[in-house]
Design a protein around this nucleic acid. Structure first.
Lengths: 195, 195
DNA sequence: GCGAGCACTTACCGACTGGTAAGTAAGCGC
DNA sequence: GCGCTTACTTACCAGTCGGTAAGTGCTCGC
C-alpha cells in the first residue's frame, strides 16, 4: 500500500525515460517492466493499457510546463526574458520532458485522447504570443509573425536539448558539458537580439 | 525491368513518407507494402531487410543535404545568408526529410550502421561553424559558442518545419500557409540579428 | 484469525512482427 | 524454344506485441 504509490510513480518515471529515448512504438510494456524488475502485467494492473500509461506520462509533462507560465518583470521585455530563462532552465534540467514533447510534436495526433493534438502546446503558445505582442517592438505584429518568432525561439531551445545524446557522441561528453554551460547565455543573446 | 527502378524508388519514397510520419518502429513492412499495393515480400526482395530500406531512405536525405553545402556570396556574412536561405527553402520544400532528420536526432545511434551516430550531421555542422567563424563578428568565437549559435538556427528552422502537421491542426491550414509564407523572412531576420 | 482488498504473478490468447523458403510468371539473350 | 534472370507471390515460421483470466500471497480492519 505505502509501496503502491511509489511503485506507480516509479513506473511513470521509467516509462517516461524510455518513451523519451525510443518513442511510443519503440518501447514495449515488457521493456518497461524489465527495467522495473516486474512483469508487464504489473503495469497493466496499474494503468490498464499502454496508451493510458503514455497519457499519464504526458500529463505529468504538461503539468510541469504549465507551472512555468508565471514570469515576473517590470517591463514586458523583462517578463519575456524571465519567462524564457525559466523555460530554458526547465528544458535543460528536464531533457526527458523536452524529448517527449518533441516526439509528440512529430507524431502529432497521438495525444492523450483528451483532445485533437497539442492541447498542452496551444495555451502555452498563446501566452507566449500575447507576451511578445506586449513588447514595444512587436506591439503591432500580426499573430502569424509573432508565432513565427516564438516558434523559432522554442525550436532553438528544444532542438538543442533533444540532441543531447547525439551531440555528446559527436563532440564528446566533455565538450558537451561546456556547451551546456554556455548555451543559456547564447540563447538569451538570441532572445535579446529579437526584442 | 524498366519498371524495376521505378518500383524501387517509389518504395523508397513511400517508406520515407511513412517513416517520417510515424517513425521506424511505428511503420511495418506490411504498412509500406499496403500503400504500394504489394506484399511485404516485394520490399524484402528489393531491400533484404527493413533496416536496409530505412538506411537507403536516410542515405537519400543525406545526399540531398550534402548537395546544399555550396553557397555563394562576396562576404562570409553573405555566404552564410545564402547558405541558410538554401537550407530554409530545402527544409520547407522537403518536410519529410526534415522530420526524418529530427527523428534520427532523437533516436540517435540508429544510423545506417555505417557509423556511430550522425554521420550526416557532423560534416554539415563543421562546415557551418567554419563559415560562422569566418564572419567579422564571430571571428574569435570558440567552437562551442559557434556551435551553440548554429544549433539555435538549425533548431529554429527544423522545429518549425517538423511541426507542420501539429501547427495546421492548432491554427488551421489557412493560417498555416500564411505562416509558411512569412517564415523564411522571419528566419532571415533572426539570422541577421545574430550576425 | 478471518475475510477483503491490493499488488502482483503465471498462463494464456489472437494479432502482428520481420524474415525464410519455395514457387510462379514475364522478359530477354541466343 | 530453352535457360537464365528479375519481379513478385503464397505459405509459413518463431518471436513479440498488447491484453485477458485466473490465480497467489501479503496486509489490514475488525
Amino acid at each position: 500500500m505505502t509501496e503502491s504509490k511509489d511503485t506507480k510513480t516509479q513506473m511513470r518515471a521509467v516509462a517516461a525515460r524510455l518513451f523519451a529515448e525510443r518513442g511510443y512504438y519503440g518501447v514495449s510494456l515488457a521493456n518497461i517492466a524489465a527495467e522495473l524488475g516486474l512483469t508487464k502485467q504489473a503495469l497493466i494492473h496499474h494503468f490498464a493499457t499502454k496508451d493510458r500509461l503514455y497519457a499519464e506520462v504526458l500529463t505529468g509533462v504538461s503539468n510541469r510546463i504549465s507551472q512555468l507560465s508565471d514570469a515576473t518583470g517590470a517591463t514586458p521585455e523583462a517578463q519575456l526574458e524571465s519567462f524564457f530563462d525559466g523555460f530554458c532552465a526547465y528544458a535543460i534540467s528536464h531533457p526527458t520532458d523536452t524529448r517527449l514533447l518533441l516526439r509528440e510534436l512529430l507524431d502529432n495526433k497521438h495525444s492523450t485522447g483528451q483532445q485533437g493534438a497539442d492541447w498542452y502546446l496551444e495555451p502555452f503558445l498563446r501566452g507566449l504570443i500575447r507576451r511578445l505582442q506586449a513588447t514595444s517592438r512587436w506591439r503591432d505584429a500580426p499573430d502569424p509573425q509573432a508565432l513565427a518568432i516564438c516558434y523559432q525561439l522554442l525550436g532553438a531551445l528544444s532542438y538543442f536539448v533533444a540532441s543531447q545524446a547525439a551531440l555528446k557522441q559527436i563532440i564528446g561528453a566533455a565538450h558537451y558539458s561546456e556547451l551546456q554551460d554556455i548555451f543559456p547565455g547564447e540563447f538569451r543573446r538570441t532572445l535579446r537580439a529579437l526584442l
